[in-house]
Structures are given as structure tokens and as C-alpha cells.
Design a protein around this nucleic acid. Sequence first.
DNA 1: CTGTGTGCAAACACTTTGCAGGTGT
DNA 2: ACACCTGCAAAGTGTTTGCACACAG
Lengths: 136, 136
Amino acid sequence: MNSSFRILKDFKLRSTPGRAAILDAFLTHNYALSHGDLEKEVPATFDRVTVYRTLKTFLDKGLIHKVLDGEGGMKYALCNEACTTANHHHDHVHFKCTKCGQTNCLQVEIPEIKLPKGYQPREINLLIQGVCGTCG
Amino acid sequence: MNSSFRILKDFKLRSTPGRAAILDAFLTHNYALSHGDLEKEVPATFDRVTVYRTLKTFLDKGLIHKVLDGEGGMKYALCNEACTTANHHHDHVHFKCTKCGQTNCLQVEIPEIKLPKGYQPREINLLIQGVCGTCG
DNA sequence: CTGTGTGCAAACACTTTGCAGGTGT
DNA sequence: ACACCTGCAAAGTGTTTGCACACAG
């Protein structure tokens, strides 16, 4: 049942209705959500501003990570269990379907990229756009 | 000399001072420029709006392509000669240096990614953030 | 001359900030 | 009780649109 409260505690965050609602939205959708998506998914009782702040908090604590949406926008998705506040590794492929608009985290690792010497990679982001399995 | 006028003609675009200036900015910088960068690079005689519209036109005609900047923003870079209006292929790696802020197109191909079946890729975008050769 | 590009003003959308009051622990 | 969240209002930033005029071809 209400697992969001547990998760919030695990991440040392206060349990508030707003946070629980947003977290629930992430738990029940297995694709990445933009701020705009959240405003639709979450009961309109919550302020825009709260959503912004909550997202930032979740990001800081490592609960969610950013997902590029290919249009200059930003989406967010839950981190998997392996992520902690300090140590993140979501070097997986993100796929955005141009038909349904959903952006998913695929369980596909990003292959190693050989960079010219001197280049030190820190964060890597691979976004593929096209038609997804369900829309194809 | 003034090669921007030739390029514009090649792409069937009218030669105007504004377009030439913006194109020049791209020609003289070998890294991706955001709209904000352009406002600084280009003599302030041109309107913000003109820059927006010019970028859109260049995109449409295939003169430039989008480059993700990893922060929800968007940058733009010249397409290489192989790109035409209809047929684009800039499946190369983009590298954003967190020190100098420059985003470069690297001459590194993106390796083939195996997607789950049913997924049809159309556009692929790989952005690596870290420290570049000159800043490292 | 004709159609397209440009500038200006305004509208619009998105995000952040400050502050007063409410809520979780 | 205290610190932290939240809502509201407002400011800040980035982008788009409408219209009249200017300019390239």
C-alpha cells in the first residue's frame, strides 16, 4: 500500500501530502514525467510552485533524475534502487516516442564511447527518438 | 571572403544582413551556440525576435541542427556538408564542458544501440558532459 | 513589383523568489 | 516547539505572434 511514505522516509524527507502525490505519480507511471505532466496527473489542489520545489528536492536527494526530452524541455524519472544521494548511475538509454509522446527509461546500457584524449566524461545522456514498441 | 552569402544562396534563402551575421557567428565559432550566445556574438543591431525566427528558418532548411545542452536548454550547430534539407545525419557525439560551458560536436560516431524489438529509432542524441581537452 | 524578412509591441509560457502562515516530527 | 513545507503574489526569463514597414530578388 502507501509505499510513498516509506520511500520518503528512506530518503530522509518529510512526508507531506504533496510529496506523496507527486511520488505516487512517478510510481504509477513507468515513463518520465515533465512538470506539465505532473500538473495534470496530480490533483489540482497543489500549487505549481510546490511541484517545482518538490522536483528540485527530489533531485537533490537523488530520488529522481533528469531525462532530456529532446525539445529543450526536461522530464524526470525515478532512480532505480542502486542510486543513492551521492552515487548515481543511470547510464541507460532514454527513448522518446514521437507518437505517444512518452519518454521511457530502457534497460539498455550505453556502450562505452571513446573520446579524444583529454576529455573527461562525467555524465552521459543518450536520447533516442522514434516510434516505440506499442505505437509501432 | 563573404561566404555566408553563398551558403545562404545554396540553401535557397534570401541574403539579408541579419542572416549573414548569424551564419557568420556559426562559421567563426566551432562550438554550438544558444540563442543567448548569439545575442552576444551578433551586433546588437538585430532584434531578439529576428534571431529566433532566423534560427527556426535555418533549422527548417537544414542549415543547422539542434544540440541538447543538458539543462533543458537548446543549442545549435552547423550541419556538415553531408546534410541536406531532406536527409540529415548528425549521429555524432556532443560534448559539453562544465568548465568553459562550450558544447562541441565531436567527430565520434555513436555506436549502434540494440533496442528492444518494436522500437524504431529515428533520431539519436548523445550528450556527454564533463571536462574538455582544453580545460582539463 | 511582389513576397518575404524585420522591428516593435504585446502576449504568452515557464520558472524562481519572498514572505506569511500551516504542518510534520 | 521548531524547522521545514506550502500557497499566494509577484518578479524574472525565455519564446511566440500580429502587424506595418523595409528590402531582396
